[in-house]
Design a protein around this nucleic acid. Structure first.
Length: 762
RNA sequence: GCCCGGGUGGCGGAAUGGCAUACGCGGGGGACUUAAAAUCCCUUGACCGCAAGGUCGUGCGGGUUCGACUCCCGCCCCGGGCACCA
């Protein structure tokens, strides 16, 4: 009896799948399609079990859907541009392209080694001109529509990455790659994509994803977009004509309770306001002090409220009342108008501020329901809706009514209007680094900024050889790249030397899989219409905002370009848990990785796959345990032994009894075994179908094996055709999770007609 | 502070109102073996008991129900997200 030899079996079946082109799928409108996608990896270092868990889950789904008769597209590619490659180049003197390609080769080898059912014809690598020329093409289309634009602004600079970061790449005031490095504000001229133009739609269509996306991802995106409905109101400044201060408020109904205006220290009107007031120099000094203290975004949230009177008064347009203008450290220049009205009785922050600086606290909203607020009983701000009091003509209205009426009146009176604002900012995409897509514009002495004509795409990234990581845009030091003729006037021009954020690359890559080698267009819309949107996307929660927001934005832009006809790129999203070792996520920098290849060497990849599925439900974090793997290995050996021991008898079984046929003549014992097998089938199907609890699916299969083992049905004289049916079911159920072993068992059971790759799910 | 998850043996975890702890790991005992590995069998929540058996037991306190890990109310703890967003 042959022992289970995973290495041999795995090689054998991988060769067979290759020869059969078992996982290649082409668009075929007569078949229902299913798109299974795993987030494409950044090829750095070694592929570890964290990656493998992601791909194993995807592979199980792809194989299960294939068995169900779907035309399954299951592609893989490489997020090949990015900083670590460039940093490796600086540290080791290797070119980023060579470093990246070496890593891609090894990642690919391991993917093959694990038997993932990818259609490799669709492979892409984002650092190849064949791919990134379409980044440039998209950029030019956005430029034409005003979605891409250039402006000077305050941006986030990471001193370790030596580049500007997008807002989405800043976590708790620090760089997302360097959690201990606060980003520094920096004035910079750079390119932005006007994602805010889609803010409302990005928020609205999240509702369509309720059934398919994790609640927390939807919440995170909603928070990030941060829609607020409110009113913009202008306060004139006493003694200065023509210089109104605008505030944004969601509670215009409380404006009769405003006891001050508070401006952000960076407010552009401040210097004009302060000019000529008593104590001018002292106030200016205080402003400088506040500004300096606010350089670290991380500190702002925790800092104590501070402020001071700026020397002038504003006029409340609703009642003509004079209120002092203050400067406060808690007012954010980046949000709203950079100025707020201070209504202490009905806003917690204002209450705190007013208490500290002894400002008036007039009550203008009463809760009703028999409760009455008085200055004596008000120990905290009352921030809920109620009924307006002491609010002139609005007294007696509910808060909702007052907001509506006061917004309308402000607009009629020309001193304000209802407005919706978002927290979301435009996407800054310029990076002062080398290893990325060149931005396809140039600057002509005569014509100014000129887009590179489509016919001149791609703008190929030159092969630089010296990397220092110092200073600005490495490409600026390559004269052959920088100096060009202007395509408009033929005069002297300079190329843009910043490169694109690599999140552009990953924003549309899964559309390219549908038509990976098209050299006339990013993709053929007909193919995309067949394959997209993605039916099931699987990846880490880290991309809950970053990648998943950007890709939704790209989808909407592509729709408006007439390239796609859907509104959301991904129907269902699954975020798998981390693979931990010693309590922290496996990562090269922490030095706690378990390499996928060594895993496959030691136990075989089927065991590795099974372990990541069995050790925990897929959404939970999983602590790596070598002992638990041995349990999985034992189980697979046990199954192999069980089948091979009975293979000869079962092969000879009469072919009469197929799965699902009734067995009137079976003995009670035979029926009990069959019943068990079908119970397991029902529950395992449910696990594959919707619950994705592969750990309990595996447990059920173990139970079935234990049951067969305990009963020894053949030895006890059970009908071979009945036993065969049970073994067939077991094998089919194992197939998505441990495909190599399942194929081997299938063959041992005498099925020589076809591989399991496309066998029908029972 | 607000919003999501979660809390079950020594450990990973199972149980979609119906035998709590499936399955696996680890532990204990045994068979086979000269021996070991592998394999196979038995056992393994806590407490009381020689035993048959009994009592307790899913973070804590209440409630609904014939019946609650599961539903409701109030807390505690852990993880994650958001947060001077006006």
């Amino acid at each position: 009896m042959a022992e289970y030899d995973p290495q041999a079996i795995e090689q054998k079946w991988q060769a067979r799948w290759n020869a059969d082109r078992a996982f290649e799928a082409d668009a075929d409108p007569s078949k229902p399609k299913y798109y299974v996608l795993e987030m494409l990896p950044y090829p750095s270092g070694t592929l570890h079990m964290g990656h493998m868990r992601n791909y194993t889950i995807g592979d199980v789904i792809a194989r299960y859907r294939r068995m169900q008769g779907f035309n399954v597209i299951h592609p893989m590619g490489w997020d090949a541009f990015g900083l670590p490659a460039e940093n490796a180049a600086i540290q080791r003197g290797i070119h980023p392209r060579d470093w990246t390609n070496t890593n891609i080769e090894s990642f690919k080898r391991v993917c093959h080694r694990f038997g993932f059912s990818y259609d490799w014809r669709r492979e892409i690598s984002t650092c190849e001109p064949e791919y990134y020329r379409w980044n440039q093409w998209f950029f030019l289309r956005m430029l034409e529509r005003g979605i891409a634009y250039r402006k000077r602004s305050r941006v986030n600079w990471c001193s370790k990455c030596m580049t500007v970061l997008a807002n989405e790449q800043v976590v708790d005031g620090c760089c997302w790659r360097h959690e201990d490095t606060p980003v520094e504000p920096k004035e910079n001229e750079q390119w932005f994509l006007r994602i805010t133009q889609y803010a409302d739609e990005l928020l609205e269509t999240l509702d369509q994803l309720e059934d398919g996306w994790p609640e927390r991802v939807l919440t995170m995106q909603r928070n990030w977009i941060g829609k607020s409905r409110g009113t913009r109101v202008q306060f004139s400044v006493e003694g200065i004509s023509g210089k109104a201060i605008e505030v944004f408020t969601t509670r215009v109904d409380t404006i009769f309770g405003a006891s001050a205006l508070i401006l952000a220290p960076e407010h552009p009107l401040l210097s004009a306001l302060v000019a000529g007031v008593k104590n001018q120099s002292e106030i200016e000094e205080n402003i400088q002090k506040l500004r300096r203290r606010l350089t670290r975004a991380a500190d702002i949230a925790t800092a104590e409220k501070e402020g001071f009177f700026a020397g002038r008064y504003a006029v409340n347009p609703f009642n003509g009342e004079k209120i002092p203008i203050w400067v406060g450290n808690f007012v954010l220049m980046e949000y709203g108008t950079g100025a707020v009205m201070c209504v202490p009785a009905h806003d917690e922050r204002d209450f705190e501020f007013a208490t500290k600086y002894d400002l008036a606290i007039p009550i203008v909203v009463q809760p009703g329901e028999g409760k009455e607020l008085t200055p004596q009983t008000l120990t905290a701000a009352f921030t809920e809706y109620g009924r307006s009091v002491n609010s002139g003509p609005y007294t007696g209205l509910s808060s909702e009514q007052a907001i509506a009426k006061m917004s309308a009146d402000a607009e009629a009176g020309g001193f304000g209007k209802g407005e919706i604002i978002f927290r979301l900012k435009d996407w800054g995409i310029s990076r002062q680094r080398y290893w990325g897509t060149p931005i396809p514009v140039l600057y002509c002495e005569k014509c100014g900024m000129v887009p590179v004509p489509d016919k001149d795409l791609p703008v190929v990234l030159p092969r630089m050889t010296k990397f220092t990581g110092m200073g600005q845009s490495p490409l600026a030091s390559v004269p052959e790249f920088v100096n060009v003729k202007c395509p408009k006037c033929g005069g002297q021009a300079r190329r843009e030397t910043d490169t694109m954020d690599t999140f552009i690359d990953s924003s549309w890559y899964f559309y390219r899989y549908a038509d990976a080698h098209n050299d006339k267009a990013a993709f053929d819309p007909a193919l995309v219409r067949y394959w997209l949107p993605v039916d099931q996307y699987i990846g880490g929660i880290v991309h809950a905002i970053l990648h998943l927001l950007y890709t939704r934005f790209f989808c909407k832009v592509m729709r408006d370009l007439g390239l796609v006809n859907h509104n959301e790129p991904v129907k269902r999203l699954f975020t798998q848990g981390l693979v931990l070792k010693g309590g922290t996520a496996m990562s090269k920098s922490k030095g706690n990785v378990v390499g996928a290849e060594e895993m496959a060497e030691k136990f075989g990849c089927d065991t590795g796959r099974l372990y990541t599925l069995f050790a925990a439900p897929p959404e939970k974090d999983l602590e790596w345990s070598e002992q638990a793997i041995e349990g999985c290995s034992r189980f697979l050996h046990r199954v192999h032994r069980l089948v091979s021991r009975h293979a000869d008898a079962l092969k000879a079984a009469p072919a009469g009894t197929g799965i699902g046929q009734s067995l009137d003549s079976a003995t009670p014992k035979e029926k009990a075994l069959l019943r068990k097998a079908h119970q397991v089938l029902r529950r395992v199907t449910n696990d594959y179908e919707s619950r994705w609890h592969f750990n309990s699916a595996t447990a059920l299969l173990m139970e079935l094996v234990n049951e067969i083992h305990a009963q020894e049905p053949l030895e006890q004289g059970a009908r071979p055709d009945v036993v065969k049916q049970v073994f067939d079911l077991l094998t089919l159920m194992l197939a998505p999770m441990v495909p190599h072993l399942a194929e081997e068992l299938w063959e041992m059971l005498g099925h020589s007609d076809h591989t399991l790759a496309h066998a029908a799910w029972p």
